[in-house]
């Protein structure tokens, strides 16, 4: 009886501590976010760093995003063909490809790929700078690490991912087109006009807005985990993992929330 009571008290204490820890973490993240937003909009601005990040986050992610959306478009066309022939609805293929790519697949897949590519590298780079005291050195040279390191990455991520997704939309639709024409034997002009007719501004716009959110999430999580990295190589490794996992999960959650906002 006594033992049970102690176990119960223990459980309460442990779960209480866990809940507190979650709140503490959330609080730290919001403090980081607040600090970052303040520094993004106040001078001095580090244009050169920002430009560099546009290149490394945007330009160098093009191949990954392009490949992902291209193959996804191709697979979509094939899969919907095998499904839709059962209902004699082959003409719907172009609509399925176009709408799924622009609304969902391009932003989510690009977001996840960029989380792996960019989120990880940001966390590793900033984490290493934390561990080797380079971030402390920045402050002693009266440069805010938020302005010098965090702001350029978050600006670049938020602005570049929409552009990547626009390009991904085009490449994805092209992938569907290639398979439909060359493998499934559709007529090119029919396919294209069907795609164009079904497409509405909102489809592309919602995907682009999602992309901006995802870019913000990926770079924020990369910076946050890198900035608060533990000590040593192990600390940087954990920070990198946390950055990728947390941004992937947040992307999926926010994708649902944003879809709800846009299409209900």
């Amino acid at each position: 009886m006594l033992f049970k009571k102690i176990a119960f008290v223990d459980l309460c204490q442990n779960s209480g501590a866990a809940v507190l820890a979650v709140f503490a973490k959330a609080g730290r993240l919001f403090a980081f976010l607040g600090c970052t937003l303040k520094h993004i909009f106040t001078p001095p601005f580090f244009y050169k760093n920002t430009l560099q990040q546009f290149l490394s986050i945007g330009y160098y992610s093009l191949p990954v995003v392009g490949l992902t959306t291209f193959f996804t478009g191709m697979v979509l066309a094939l899969q919907s063909y095998t499904g839709f022939t059962r209902f004699n609805a082959e003409s719907a293929i172009s609509a399925v490809v176009t709408l799924s790519i622009t609304r969902e697949l391009a932003p989510v897949l690009a977001g996840l790929m960029v989380a792996g590519r960019v989120g990880a590298s940001i966390a590793a780079e900033i984490g290493t700078m934390r561990v080797t005291e380079q971030i402390d050195a920045l402050s002693t040279l009266s440069v805010s690490p938020y302005k010098y390191l965090v702001a350029p990455r978050i600006i670049a991520g938020t602005l570049m991912l929409p552009i990547l997704v626009l390009i991904g939309d085009i490449i994805g639709i092209l992938g569907g087109y290639v398979v439909s024409i060359h493998v499934l034997g559709f007529s090119p002009s029919n396919y294209l006009s069907q795609s164009w007719d079904i497409l509405q501004f909102m489809d592309v716009f919602s995907g682009v807005v999602k992309a901006a959110f995802f870019g913000f999430i990926v770079t924020l999580m990369g910076c946050y985990h890198g900035y608060n990295s533990g000590r040593g190589a192990q600390g940087v490794g954990i920070a990198t993992t946390n950055a990728v996992v947390s941004s992937s999960i947040l992307i999926l959650i926010f994708n649902y929330l944003l879809t709800q906002v846009f299409f209900s």
Partner: peptide
């Protein structure tokens, strides 16, 4: 800094 902390 003890470890140098140069910006690599």
């Amino acid at each position: 800094f003890q470890g140098g902390a140069l910006f690599d």
